[in-house]
């Protein structure tokens, strides 16, 4: 179990006139290789939550354990190691690109951790492949000439090049067009399913999270108000209604059809799986 949080609270701008409590009494565990989607309104503390997991912010109350060790006790050196194992992709990561060439941008991390040029080179190639950037085509391209979707993949590769075992992402699809969004989500899913990297991502859009994640957590006003396996999402239909969160149309339709007496298995929440079952019903029923 890489992450265990026990009764964690965090306040923003502590001691200032406008202090705000960002997180209150979080209690949960993340398993190895999970793909966890975290959703919540702006200002609900989602981004704070991610930064607690790799000790960029320190819990004010409670404990954050990584592999059984209390993060508060980590030495500076241990923290450097931790941040390699727990990669973090900030919101709009392309804004932090500084190198002129794609290759140098991605090699920055591996070089920082003291890899020789041969090893660093291997890391760059591997991570570019992980995000679907062809090495021959992209490695010597200039970073400013890339599209926003490509830039974001470069930034993601820059983190993957450190070979993290767990990946934290803050709104990885924000600001991208439909195509850019799809590509990022597909690669994240691939990284999780094929390379068994734990993925914890924060996003606004329920449909996007449901399409790739296996577990969903909703944070509201600093508290966890829902924590469920994605396959059981419809069990929480009323709760979602209360929270004012809309389900994607295929699940909403599945739920309403269930209410009309249809048997639809929603263990697989994919659009294709749901559509297939409905089609079977139509053919057998009429």
């Amino acid at each position: 179990m890489p992450f265990i949080l026990k009764d964690v609270s965090f306040t923003y701008q502590k001691g200032m006139a406008f202090a705000q409590k960002a997180l209150k009494g979080l209690d949960f565990t993340v398993e190895d290789g999970e793909m966890l989607g975290v959703m919540g309104a702006a200002g609900s503390g989602k981004s704070t939550f991610l930064q607690l997991l790799n000790a960029l912010l320190k819990a004010e109350q409670g404990y954050v354990f990584y592999e059984g060790q209390d993060l508060a006790q980590f030495s500076k050196k241990q923290l450097i190691g931790l941040r390699q194992e727990v990669g973090m992709v900030f919101q709009y990561p392309e804004q932090q690109i500084f190198a002129d060439l794609v290759y140098d941008e991605i090699a920055f991390g591996p070089r920082n951790i003291g890899l020789d040029s041969e090893d660093a080179d291997r890391r760059v190639r591997e991570s570019m492949q992980q995000v679907g950037l062809d090495f021959a085509e992209y490695s010597s391209r200039r970073t400013i000439a890339l599209s926003s979707g490509e830039k974001r993949r470069v930034a993601l590769a820059g983190i993957l090049a450190l070979k993290p075992r767990h990946l934290l992402l803050d709104e990885p699809t924000a600001g991208l067009d439909g195509e850019g969004r799809r590509v990022i989500l597909d690669y994240l899913q691939h990284i999780n399913r094929q390379e068994h990297i734990t993925v914890i991502m924060v996003a606004h859009h329920l449909g996007q999270l449901l399409s790739v994640c296996r577990r969903l957590m909703i944070i509201e006003k600093g508290r966890i108000v829902l924590d469920t396996s994605v396959s059981r999402i419809l069990d929480h239909y009323d709760r979602l209604q209360e929270l004012g969160i809309e389900l994607p149309p295929h699940l909403e339709a599945a739920y309403r059809l269930q209410r009309r007496g249809w048997k639809i298995d929603t263990a697989d929440v994919g659009v294709a799986a749901i559509a297939r079952q409905i089609a079977d019903k139509i053919r057998s029923g009429s």
Binding site: R181, V271, A275
Partner: peptide
């Protein structure tokens, strides 16, 4: 729509997926 970088409506996607099944 996809060709011009626009994601179809979620409900259109769903209907498209339904219609992919023969007889629907």
């Amino acid at each position: 729509l996809t060709q011009v970088g626009i994601e179809p409506l979620e409900i259109s996607n769903f209907i498209g997926e339904l219609n992919r099944n023969p007889g629907v």
